[in-house]
Design a protein around this nucleic acid. Structure first.
Length: 121
DNA sequence: TACCTGACATAAT
DNA sequence: CATTATGCCAGGT
């Protein structure tokens, strides 16, 4: 199982205008306890250029990876550009997951599982 | 091998 | 809500 390739595939399917959490992606990749590795993958560019890393936030909705972008407010701008409201809080910029979180379905999860199998990753 | 680090998560307080 | 403690696990040194 190639965890990072799975991360790439899942990230590429996060809908525009929505934000996914590290834990959610790890779960969809079949490794529910590897949330930190999702962050590692994005930070090191292991998910490729095509993966919308700006749509990935932590469980509280904080843009914890903002510092890894070209400019410190790039992630915020990219999100706002697709309609996601970002507010400044004591912890940093945050999106309301209640409104902009990616509520993936069971079907999504099953599709990914099948796709991993099909691609042998 | 042993220890440290980190784009994390969750339960307890 | 906020703060703390624990668990987690791939990578790097």
């Amino acid at each position: 199982m190639d965890f990072y390739k799975r991360v790439t595939l899942v990230c590429q399917h996060i809908p525009e205008g929505r934000a996914a959490t590290y834990g959610q992606i790890a779960l969809l990749c079949g490794k529910p306890r590897n949330a930190r590795q999702v962050g590692y993958a994005l930070n090191r560019g292991l998910a490729g250029e095509r993966a919308p890393a700006h749509r990935v936030v932590n469980a509280k909705g904080i843009l914890s990876g903002a510092a890894a972008f070209e400019s410190h407010d790039m992630q915020k701008l990219l999100l706002e550009q697709e309609g996601v409201a970002v507010a400044m809080t004591p912890d940093g910029w945050r999106v309301e997951l209640k409104r902009f979180g990616w509520d993936h379905t069971l079907e999504d999860a099953l599709w990914f599982r099948a796709e991993f199998e099909k691609r042998g990753i």
